[in-house]
């Protein structure tokens, strides 16, 4: 009897929390289907009279959301792919190849983990300006090809792989490149997927870098496009909410498809502190 009551209390806490999480999203979706005049009423209604699909069409009339998506996908693809490659390669060197100065160099990588990203913002801007990459996707992609955190993480993963596997391959005449490609990468697929999801979330949702480096609308990413739209149509809530819904769909779909990796990927950033 007592157990049932405590279970009920816990459920109550969890439901209250879940409602708090969901209601803003519900409100966003419901507003996105309302007519403009239905939004400016008090008390507000939970559902409009009719479902106004046109709000979604208006979004793309005013702003090239399709293009924003393509831009975001392109940037995310290159950054995720490059970070997995550079992080796993360097992680392999730091964990498996003995060379002079390895520990000192790795400490340098570790040391930079506590540096707030914003410290690099102004110099990176100057470098991008020097190369003429402002308002080009290169300004977002190039500085993100390497991650000290990803390198650290891949090293930790590789350290857990038993040395015997590597030694056996070495005796069979494998060189480090073959060991990396045929043993280490296949064995760390889940780790790579987790790091990939973590990197994707960071770059897809990134705001300050596109804000600083991108000026023209056709080059914008999804978050920057949405922010620009918000600046222009700050009172047309149905259309603005429709734009927000659209901006969230890809991450949501990815989340539903790979929830476990998302959960693990996001907790990885816990290690970052």
């Amino acid at each position: 009897m007592k157990n049932k009551r405590t279970a009920a209390i816990y459920h109550l806490i969890l439901i209250a929390g879940a409602l708090t999480m969901v209601i803003p999203f519900f409100w966003m979706v419901s507003t996105s289907f309302k007519a403009l005049k239905e939004v400016f009423v008090f008390p507000p209604t939970f559902f409009g009279d009719k479902i106004i699909w046109q709000n979604y069409l208006k979004v793309s009339d005013r702003y090239p959301f399709g293009l924003f998506f393509l831009n975001s996908i392109k940037i995310s693809f290159f950054v995720v792919f490059a970070q997995l490659l550079t992080s796993s390669m360097a992680g392999f060197a730091f964990s498996r190849i003995k060379f002079k100065g390895r520990e000192a160099l790795f400490s340098l990588y570790l040391g930079t983990l506590i540096v707030p990203f914003h410290v690099t913002l102004v110099p990176t801007f100057l470098i991008m300006k020097y190369f003429g990459w402002i308002d080009s996707h290169l300004s977002i992609i190039i500085p993100s090809l390497v991650s000290a955190f990803g390198t650290f993480l891949m090293r930790q993963f590789f350290l857990t792989i038993p040395e015997e596997l590597e030694n056996a391959a070495r005796i069979d005449g494998c060189n480090p490149a073959m060991i990396y490609l045929m043993i280490f990468l296949p064995l760390t697929k889940p780790a790579l997927a987790t790091l990939g999801v973590f990197t994707f979330m960071g770059i897809w949702n990134d705001f300050i870098r596109p804000l600083v480096f991108i000026n023209s609308i056709p080059k914008m990413t999804v978050p920057l496009g949405l922010a620009t739209m918000q600046g222009m149509y700050s009172t047309d809530w149905p259309v603005l909410m429709a734009g927000t819904v659209i901006s969230l769909i890809p991450v949501l779909v990815a989340f539903i498809a790979a929830q476990e990796y998302f959960v693990r990927g996001v907790t990885l950033s816990g290690l970052k502190g």
Partner: peptide, 27 residues
């Protein structure tokens, strides 16, 4: 767990736009 996670995976921009609407003084 999935529901608590929705805001975590959403971008700050999207979240901020939605909350701006929730905070609207009159409506």
């Amino acid at each position: 767990r999935a529901l608590y996670f929705l805001p975590v995976i959403s971008s700050y921009v999207a979240v901020a736009v939605v909350w701006q609407w929730l905070y609207n003084a009159e409506f």
